[in-house]
Design a protein around this nucleic acid. Structure first.
Lengths: 202, 202
DNA sequence: AAACGATAGCCGAACAAGCCCCGAAGTGCA
DNA sequence: TGCACTTCGGGGCTTGTTCGGCTATCGTTT
């Protein structure tokens, strides 16, 4: 549903206000900002925005305007940075609660997501370098060729490409020439998640 | 669920307090901080915060407030996707107005930013692969080792690593073994911008 | 060209609900 | 027993809702 000029202005105002303050403006504040003399005008605009799917409101509640992601405004989600990951090394969880902002399109799949920071060049052949952030979709299974975070029996977690071969045998292919593939039985591996994106800051 | 002004203030206070001390404030401390004369007020606010899913509490326990990781939406910036870039090839601008959502931290430098989609494996040695999105900070100068988008005299734009050598000579190093570096005089090159980030979607 | 209908945008006023705060009495736990 | 949280009733204020009515614009029908 397309927006009119006025509706877009109001949506932008809502976005800015909520971004700054952490809560939505009241009708009165919206009216003041747009020089309206009646709250009914505000109400009508918000009703239209909701009808067109850009915001969501709850009935009769104060400042209860939620801006939904749309073409106009994409958003980022702060995902927890759970730790670092290197070849064959366990995931080293961080003590402090850090987060990484990730564009919402990268986390549009079902299930939980989190971020791991890559240490070392163990995934260099997959164009993932030291210091990159990988976005992981939490899952218990994977398809061939996907990059997985896998937990091996008492040998910690690792990040490898996943290939299912015959008779329940699984090949874990490191993304680095100098490392050889690892073969395990499907019973000896627990998939933690699948890498769905990479972010690098220079 | 959206918060009111007061509710946001209280939630922020709870977060700060717990962040500093490692445990939640008592009702009395909250009341003191907000100049309330009744603990019932505190109780009501916390009840509302719990109803809206921002905290969890256990009945009748002291300082038993747990702050839940609400989906914190930090803001994303929609940067224009100006076109594609490949080794030595001109930037091919797209006809339609497409944008790419990018977390705000990646574009925190001064000046304008835009996004280019990488075509081909010309930057493979810099761990940038076909289909990646590079975030470019628009600038007219660069430091040694930075990855630049450079405009060569009548030879289109290219993406290379930038090294200033002696006597105004500049070495443009392609990020692919099979390509040789390019040497130009600083007068024959116009830097368009510097790559500040990479985003990849699987 | 004129008439029509639909939609956007705006207003004022009456109304209803939620929000925010209070004091006081009650409850559960160490 | 004492401390901290809970519950209850109540009051003032803020905020959202609804209704009737107004103008303007745009595309369609007559």
């Amino acid at each position: 549903m397309a927006l009119t000029k006025r509706q877009r202005e109001i949506l932008t105002y809502l976005q800015d206000y909520a971004g700054d303050r952490g809560y939505a403006p009241s009708f009165e504040e919206i009216a003041a900002h747009f020089n309206y003399n009646s709250l009914a005008t505000v109400h009508e605009h918000l009703t239209n925005l909701e009808r067109k799917g850009y915001i969501r409101r709850s009935y009769n509640e104060s400042r209860a305007i939620e801006i939904l992601p749309s073409d106009v405004f994409s958003r980022a989600i702060d995902l927890p940075l759970l730790g670092t990951v290197a070849a064959g090394m366990p995931i080293e969880s961080l003590s402090y609660n850090e987060t990484v902002a990730v564009p919402q399109e990268l986390v549009s799949r079902s299930g939980e997501h989190y971020v791991l920071k890559v240490r070392g060049n163990s995934m260099i052949d997959e164009q993932i370098r030291d210091g990159d952030f990988v976005i992981v979709n939490e899952r218990r299974s994977a398809d061939n060729g996907e990059m997985v975070i896998a937990l091996l029996n008492n040998r910690g977690a690792t990040c490898k490409k996943f290939y299912r071969e015959r008779d329940g045998r699984i090949r874990l292919q490191p993304a680095n020439e100098t490392l050889s593939p690892m073969y395990v039985h499907e019973n000896d591996i627990a998939i933690q998640g699948v890498v769905v994106g990479v972010i690098r800051r220079y």
